[in-house]
């Protein structure tokens, strides 16, 4: 447990430094975009949050799978620990996207495939959280939650591919695994830095929320008493 504490501090502080340095670099030390001007700088906040909102859901679905098949209790704790943080990142992605939309698209909201599927993701996170808290029996709640989390995972490829499958207002991805990024290197490096930093910050959030969940659920066990 003490090692976890040290790892948590290390991850948190190093990723905070990376995130803040990349944000300052991106927001103040890169040139403006030739089309969007300065509003493009929201990319350094929007893209990491959108990326994490999807990857958190995938990790939640994987943990659900592990819980359903092997009944690992820790996996169930992870599922409910990740859900509020996933909701947070999705909320940041939606609001930052809306604010970005005002100066660039001329609207803060469109029922376009990418935006709508992200809204569905947000509602799904909220639904999972409220469902879990509506049960008094933790085990029943865990079982139902992990099933629903797996079913909802279908939304992730839809979000990912929505910009290619439908005509959307949202542009397609600038960074992909297969092609050369369509963003200039001077803008790309701070973006990658902000993604790594934000990732680390979210990992540390997941660590403390799981710590809370373990405390809450194992409070009657003797080892917890020794630790506290």
């Amino acid at each position: 447990m003490f090692q976890v504490e040290r790892a948590y501090k290390f991850i948190l502080y190093s990723s905070l430094i990376i995130y803040i340095v990349s944000l300052i670099w991106g927001l103040l030390f890169t040139q403006e975009d030739f089309v969007q001007g300065n509003s493009y700088r929201i990319i350094y906040l929007h893209v990491p949050a959108s990326f994490l909102s999807q990857s958190l859901y995938i990790s939640m679905a994987v943990a659900s799978f592990v819980y359903i098949v092997w009944r690992v209790k820790l996996a169930a704790y992870l599922v409910i620990s990740i859900a509020p943080i996933g909701a947070l990142t999705t909320f940041i992605a939606l609001t930052s996207g809306s604010i970005w939309g005002i100066p660039t698209w001329g609207t803060w909201w469109q029922w376009d495939a990418r935006i709508t599927s992200t809204l569905i993701l947000f509602i799904m996170y909220l639904g999972l959280i409220s469902l879990h808290s509506s049960f008094s029996n933790y085990e029943k709640a865990d079982k139902l939650l992990s099933w629903l989390a797996i079913v909802g995972a279908i939304n992730i490829p839809i979000i990912k591919k929505s910009v290619d499958w439908w005509s959307t207002l949202h542009q397609s991805a600038s960074i992909t695994l297969t092609d050369k990024p369509s963003i200039d290197p001077s803008m790309l490096y701070p973006l990658i830095g902000s993604m790594i930093g934000f990732f680390g910050i979210i990992i540390s959030l997941v660590i403390i929320s799981s710590k809370y969940q373990i405390f809450l659920r194992e409070k009657n066990k003797s080892w917890i008493k020794e630790y506290v």
């Binding site: 975009d33 030739f34 990319i43 698209w105 542009q171 200039d184 001077s186 803008m187």
Partner: peptide
Amino acid sequence: LAKHDENYMP
């Protein structure tokens, strides 16, 4: 509404 592409450059 204006649609912009995925290209970003100074």
